[in-house]
Amino acid sequence: MGTAVKDNKQRTGRREPVLFAFPFAGGTSLSYMSWDVPGTRFMPLEYGGHGLRMNEPLPSSIQAAAEDAARQVAKSLSGEKFCLFGHSMGGIVAWHALHYLEKEYGLFPEKMVVSCCDDPVHFPGRCLSLESDADVLSYLKDDMRVSKKEMESALFQKKVLPSILNDFKIIREYRCEEEGVIGTPITAIEAEGDRFVKKGTVSHWQQRTSGKFELQSFPGGHFYFDDKEILGSLLRFLEGQILI
């Protein structure tokens, strides 16, 4: 199984720009199921062992997740312009996927939008670099509001929890190997009340591009788009970013 495609080919035509969304740690393609960016083909990606690909092997590193994601992106394109969007861990996966896309497939995105994510040199910083599995479980309970009953369910224990723990393990083990500068323009989003990514640090991404850099702030915490109104603002902002 490849991407979790909202197949809008028939509705909107093949040549629309494509926006690929990289899930955050603990997230899946389903985390983006309510997102719809007008005028684009919005395609949430799925990492191996997660969500709709829960029976596949988990990625052994951020770079492995990126390589797999780049394959999904390349397979989904047939000449359209495209952009990458990654939230939190998804931003770093997107960064590495971009390198694979350029080197392995000769594909160059129009733009990369990173949200609540430190740049590769500073990642993970405080960006959800939870030190142990116990920290991750507390995070799920306190920040992700996963109930005790849900956490005890067989599906969660067998299929979901291993993928979440693996996400945080590969974050902890991540070491930057791509300090270079890309030509792709980068837009970095920060959330004003983000307790994981310190305000101002996302601007480090400016050093990672020789192209245009833009910084955008939204109110709210690390998952600022959980608020319906703010999600609407974000989707309108992304529409403006993509339709350039």
Binding site: M1, T3, A4, V5, K6, D7, G27, T28, S29, L30, S31, M33, G51, L52, M54, V146, E150, S153, L155, F156, K159, V160
Partner: peptide, 24 residues
């Protein structure tokens, strides 16, 4: 999304159907 994932897994088990990505 976690609930939806659990629903999809349960539908798969109870009704023997695969919910494709295009239905999400």
């Amino acid at each position: 999304s976690l609930d939806v994932l659990q629903i999809i897994a349960a539908l798969n088990e109870e009704f023997d159907i695969q919910v494709p990505a295009s239905e999400i």
